[in-house]
Design a protein around this nucleic acid. Structure first.
Lengths: 209, 209
DNA sequence: CTCCGTACTGTGTCTACATTCAGCAGTGAA
DNA sequence: TTCACTGCTGAATGTAGACACAGTACGGAG
């Protein structure tokens, strides 16, 4: 990686400091003001240079969309897993798209079997009687295979849903665990159904308790 | 300080999570999207409420100008907690007696608020409708104080039980969340009741799913 | 019954910000 | 001498985002 110039180092340090103090990264104008530039474009140019040298990430279109690439040692300390928390999944996009990741938690790998790959924040009460409430985190093991009786994360017509899986030949039922909701019937010969994973655990944090 | 509502707590946690992940606080629109609001103003109103309650700082005019007060010190520098899993508690002995410890799990400290001190393996279905099933692990924060509505770990006549707590003067009710079970009435003037802690979360591992 | 707080939808305005274009100057390499 | 790169000024443009106003609905306190 190209070494940074003195000026660039200064800018990078400034971004770090301002982020530390205010809680969020500075704007171009704020950088320019702090550095004494009379043109915001001076800041812009420096940011581009820092990005090209790989030490800064710029998120296009987002205000204050700066992220200092920290050569932080890999977070897979020891035998711990760091699981992403996936929130509302937009239609048509893959579940693990960065945009859906709301946070990350380190968990003990021994907690779930089989291994959990991510945590999905469950919306709605359709699985209430299975002890899965609105806002709960469902630990999901990524797989495309599911067996009858398992709790699955399924994608149906661009909607991601959590239900209990039952299969009989070509007929698949996605069963809610709440009498207020209707089972979903799927014919594999005509409807497209994608299994995104199976539920291997539940985590509920205080709020909904 | 006024206590936060469930929704407000959720928003606050979301802000923390999104800040953690992206490196900067979310915009009103991003909060609304993540929460499923169709109006950005819903987010705005929540932010105002959080500010009024003193847990959030809003910098007027600045995009993403949000700062969560009490930035939890919990940095992820390998500062993991190792929580003991407590099984059946024998009559008359302290909960955390070594004999009851069935195992230990490492967990992310950010997972529960307030801090979880141990995991209690729940027996029976008396809290079924609160989404706590037989075999679940209840994350417990050690305290002797409980407020109405909280889920408590209580010791009554040498029996440890998990119930929802309700207090009216000297009368305490320990309410099951399952119509098949009867509430327990306690008169603090004659009966001894020891609160061992409050439930701050639930973890369910595959088996009972 | 009214008032207040919570929890939203929906629309609109103004400006804070990102981003581009056009230049100028110095320095070191081919 | 031309080219590429650093390091700026200055102005312009489009939009991301803060924030105000107007409603609806519900539940609790006085």
């Amino acid at each position: 990686m190209d070494p940074l110039t003195d000026r660039q180092t200064e800018i990078l340090r400034l971004i770090r400091e301002m982020t530390e103090v205010s809680g969020f990264p500075p704007t171009r104008a704020e950088i320019a003001r702090a550095m004494g530039f009379r043109s915001v474009n001076a800041a812009e140019q420096h940011l581009r240079a820092l990005e090209k040298k790989g030490v800064l990430e710029i998120l296009a279109g987002a205000s204050r969309g700066l992220r200092v690439r920290d050569p932080r040692p890999a977070l897979r300390l020891g035998k711990l897993m760091e699981l992403p928390v996936v929130g509302r999944v937009a239609a048509g996009s893959p579940i693990l798209a960065e945009a859906h990741v709301q946070g990350r938690y380190q968990l003990d790998p021994n907690l779930f079997t089989p291994r959990a790959d991510y945590l999905l924040r469950v919306r709605g009460m359709s699985m209430r009687d299975a002890g899965i409430l609105d806002g709960d985190l469902l630990a999901v093991h990524r797989t495309h295979e599911a067996r009858t009786g398992q709790i699955v994360v399924a994608r149906l017509a661009d909607e991601v849903t959590v239900k209990r899986f039952r299969r009989r030949g070509h007929a698949v039922q996605l069963l809610p665990e709440n009498a207020d909701f209707e089972p979903i019937e799927v014919d594999l010969r005509q409807d497209s159904l994608a299994i995104e994973g199976i539920g291997v655990g539940v985590i509920r944090t205080g709020r909904s308790l």
